[in-house]
Computed example of a mutant assay.
Amino acid sequence: MKFWQMLHWIETDQLIEVARFAEELGFEGVMNGDHGVYPEVVNTPYPYAADGNPPMTGDWPYPDCWISLAMIAAATTRLKFSTSVYVLPLRHPIEVAKMTGTLALMSDNRLILGAGIGWMKEEFDCYGIDFHTRGKRMDECLDVLEKIWSGEMVEHHGRFFDFQRCQVVPAPTRPVPVFTGGASKAALKRAAKRADGWIGAGNSPDEVPGIMAELKRLRREAGRDHLPFETVVGLTQDMDIDTLKPLRESGMTAGVSAPFAFSLGRYSSLDDKKRVMEDFAESIIRPMGQDYPANTIKGMVTS
């Protein structure tokens, strides 16, 4: 089993050093969060909390994903990096394809695009994009990304995006792996049909086997169960080896070390963060026997 360090909301000047340290400790990768803007008034219920209240507010930092991940790429050599998750329907997919394709190419294909449809209507309102069509818009964005990443002369004529033959180079040497998020039936179906992996937003250990079984069923139904597929699951309770081993058997391929805001509070020192990461590596990563096989497909470890 592999493990990722979440970078959501940490002090921006600590991002690079935390990523470097994650690489030293044997983490598979790091993931940062995304919101284009955070409106002053948010009435949309947060879907991953029982009371509908999000854990963050507008003054919690969301540095630009691609600039910060490019800096992390330049400061590391093995570490993978992803977004968890990028609100893809807010953006034009040609721009996303160009940024991610360049970053993948210049980082030896260590980038994974973690993408979701978003949950905050007010954020979509700021962009002038219809919140209620975001699922269909997401699917079309994925279509455009695949075309642009090919590096060929391509065109697209869809409901949300329409462009004549054009080309974006340089292109990545292979398509950027896409992990999708979301816990709804539609989100799981999208992951099974379109993605190379799924990123959870926090689940209890009791929930995980059912989700893994459903993803397996949906992937078999889509004729994609023979392809590599990652499941990155954050647990809503403290992890231990006895909890993780049966989850690995159920199909969970990766766990996460939670955002430091949950373990240390809104602000913490770099030393404190390193201590939390060292404890996680000692108690979880090393006992679980994480390794890095040479055989990879589309930039992902396949075992």
Rank of each mutant, 00 (worst) to 15 (best):
W60Q: 02
K274G: 10
A261F: 14
G289A: 06
T83Q: 01
E17V: 08
D291H: 15
P228N: 10
V37Q: 05
E221K: 15
G181L: 01
A115E: 01
E24M: 10
D196P: 05
D279Y: 07
R110N: 11
V87M: 14
L270M: 06
T102G: 15
G223K: 14
W119D: 01
A258N: 12
D13C: 14
D130A: 12
P63C: 05
Q14F: 10
H132N: 15
R134I: 00
K185N: 10
G265F: 12
R194S: 05
A73F: 02
R275Y: 10
H157P: 02
Q164M: 00
T83V: 06
I211C: 02
A294W: 06
V18K: 05
W149P: 08
V18G: 05
W9Q: 04
L111I: 02
P55K: 00
R286K: 14
E282C: 09
I72G: 07
V178H: 03
L69Y: 08
M1I: 10
P205M: 12
G101P: 09
E23M: 07
K121T: 04
E155I: 01
E24I: 08
L215I: 15
H8T: 09
E95F: 06
K193W: 12
F163T: 06
V41S: 00
G128V: 08
E23R: 02
L145D: 09
V144K: 12
D139R: 04
V256I: 14
R266D: 03
A49I: 00
G197D: 14
H132E: 13
W198N: 05
D206A: 14
S107E: 01
V168G: 01
D139Y: 01
V154P: 04
G265P: 13
K185D: 06
M106W: 03
S184W: 00
G181P: 05
E278R: 15
L142P: 03
F280D: 10
D279T: 12
Y46D: 00
R266K: 09
P177N: 07
N295I: 11
H157Y: 08
L227T: 10
E221H: 13
A213T: 11
P61S: 11
